[in-house]
Design a protein around this nucleic acid. Structure first.
Lengths: 136, 136
DNA sequence: CTTGCCCCTGACGCGCGGGGCAGGGGTTAG
DNA sequence: CTAACCCCTGCCCCGCGCGTCAGGGGCAAG
C-alpha cells in the first residue's frame, strides 16, 4: 500500500531533490530503496519520514559521515511509534551524544574564531592608524 | 642590493611557503617577481613586506579576489613611508571599505547562523523529547 | 664530479553536500 | 503510437587557499 511514490515525488515530499536521495542512499544514510520491476526506486511515506530525519540532522550541522556510522539510530528515530526514545533523551545520547558534543565544541570554536576575526576587522577599519599590521 | 633572497627564504621570512608566494603572484596579489638569469625568483625585503601585507589582509578574512582587484592599494600599503595613508584611516576606505563592509556583514550573518545552529543543537540534546524535528 | 638541497612549471587533490550533464530507458495521457 | 516527462547510472563540477606530487634544471659544498 505504501511504495507508490517515485523518487521525484518522494524528494518533493521531503523537501529535497532526487539527486540528494540517491546521494543519501549511496552514502548509507538511507537503506537501499525498493525497486520496481524496471529498476525504479519506490518510496512509501515511512521512507519520506526517514529522509526528513536525515535532513533535520544534517541541518543541525551533523555530517554525512556522522550519520552514516549511526544508521541504526536513524532507523529508530524514523519509526512511527518512537519506542526506543524511552531509553534516552532526544537523539539517543549513547550514540549521538559524542558526535553532537564534538560538533558543539567545533561550533563554539568556529564562532569564537569568527568573532575574533570580526573584531579585528572592525578595529582596523575603525582605528585611526594602527602602527602596523596584526602580527598574528 | 636587495634582491638576494630566493623564494624559500623569502617565504620563511614572511611566515609562509614558496607555494603560497607563487600562488599569490599567479593570482595577481604580488607583482611578478624579478628573475635571476636561470629563471629563479628573487625577492628583496620590500617584497617580503608586501607579502606580509597580503597575508595580514587574508588573515582578516578578505579573499584572494578581493585583493586581486585592489592591487594598487596593496602597493600603497606596502610602501616603507606609508605616504598614501594620510588621506585615509587605515586601509584606505575609498577602495577597501566596501569589501570590508561586505565581509563584516558576511561575518555577522555567519556568526548568527552558527549561533542559531548551536542553540538548536543544544536544545535537542538537552531537551526531554521535543514533539518532532525542527521544521526549519 | 657528485651529492643533496633548492627551484621551476603544470596539473591534480582536498572537504562537503550535492548540482548538472550525457546517454539511455520507463511511463502515462492524449 | 507518440509526445512529454520521469527515471536510471556514471561522471565531472563547485569554492578556496593553497598542499602535493611529477618531471626536470640550478647551485653551493665536499
Amino acid at each position: 500500500m505504501a511504495g507508490r511514490m517515485r523518487i521525484g515525488d518522494a524528494a518533493a515530499a521531503a523537501g529535497t531533490t532526487p539527486r540528494a536521495l540517491r546521494f543519501y542512499e549511496q552514502r548509507g544514510l538511507l537503506p537501499p530503496a525498493v525497486r520496481s520491476a524496471s529498476g525504479q526506486r519506490e518510496y512509501g511515506p515511512e521512507a519520506v519520514t526517514r529522509v526528513r530525519v536525515v535532513r533535520a540532522l544534517l541541518a543541525l550541522g551533523l555530517t554525512v559521515d556522522d550519520l552514516a556510522s549511526r544508521t541504526h539510530r536513524l532507523d529508530l528515530l524514523a519509526e512511527d511509534p518512537p519506542r526506543s526514545c524511552a531509553s534516552d533523551g532526544d537523539f539517543g545520547p549513547d550514540t549521538f551524544a559524542p558526535v553532537v558534543e564534538r560538533r558543539l565544541a567545533a561550533l563554539d570554536a568556529e564562532i569564537a574564531r569568527l568573532a575574533r576575526l570580526r573584531e579585528a576587522l572592525a578595529r582596523h577599519t575603525g582605528a585611526e592608524a594602527g602602527s602596523d599590521l596584526p602580527g598574528r
